[in-house]
């Protein structure tokens, strides 16, 4: 259940943003990605999730093992909390929607429509969706945005339980989650050279993107 990456280069908008990225995430461990805005954290995570191809380098992970959570939570405003979660549980073929709602403290809101949730509550629902995927490697992009302190602590507990159960987590975040065991990887040294300085350009067809 290891995720390992070597020599990875990723591009956004046809221009390489990161190159030579290498790390290894083992089962039961968490890795926090740091770096200034625009360094390419989201692009790296999207590449790992398979949403865009890497420019170069190798990624290896077990098939169908990644649960990806982006800035957008993928919630349907007219569905209730329970319906939203039940849908993602059914898509992933798991039956853990109830447990996920309990874990993310959503039971009280279960019959509320997602349109009527606050930003933090939506975020908790978005994170509960990661739980119902039942996949071992979590790839989370800014998971704590708009969460209050209590919810951050709740989420840290959920991550810790996931790690203890043999899962792993890769997170791009600026907030200290209070996960003492998490390693931190600063992406600044992997910043790609500018094209004028001999850096890599994106693939041909990305020029039209």
């Amino acid at each position: 259940m290891d995720l390992s990456v070597s020599g990875l280069a990723v591009a956004r908008g046809g221009i390489a943003v990161l190159e030579g990225v290498r790390f290894r995430l083992m089962a039961g461990r968490a890795l926090v990605l740091r770096g200034p805005n625009g360094i390419g954290k989201t692009t790296l995570l999207r590449t790992l999730a398979g949403l865009q191809p890497p420019l170069a380098g190798e990624m290896s992970m077990p098939a169908e093992s990644l649960a990806y959570a982006a800035h957008a939570d993928g919630l349907k405003a007219v569905l209730t909390v329970a319906e939203n979660l039940a849908f993602w549980a059914a898509v992933n073929g798991t039956a853990t929607a109830e447990a996920a709602m309990t874990a993310m403290n959503l039971q009280e809101l279960r019959d509320r429509r997602a349109a009527h949730l606050s930003a933090g509550q939506k975020r908790r629902l978005g994170l509960a969706r990661v739980l119902v995927t039942g996949r071992p490697i979590w790839v989370l992009d800014e998971p704590t945005v708009s969460l209050d302190a209590a919810s951050v602590a709740l989420f840290a507990g959920v991550v810790r339980a996931h790690l203890a159960a043999g899962g792993s987590a890769l997170m791009a975040t600026h907030i200290d989650l209070g996960l003492a065991e998490a390693e931190v990887l600063d992406l600044t040294p992997f910043k790609a050279r500018a094209p004028v300085a001999g850096g890599r350009m994106g693939a041909f067809d990305e020029a039209f993107g």
Binding site: A49, A67, H71, G74, N92
Partner: peptide, 14 residues
């Protein structure tokens, strides 16, 4: 589905 991020998540789903 694209606007609310569901399409990304469906793409990474089984």
């Amino acid at each position: 589905d694209f606007e609310d991020g569901s399409l990304d998540l469906l793409t990474t789903s089984p």
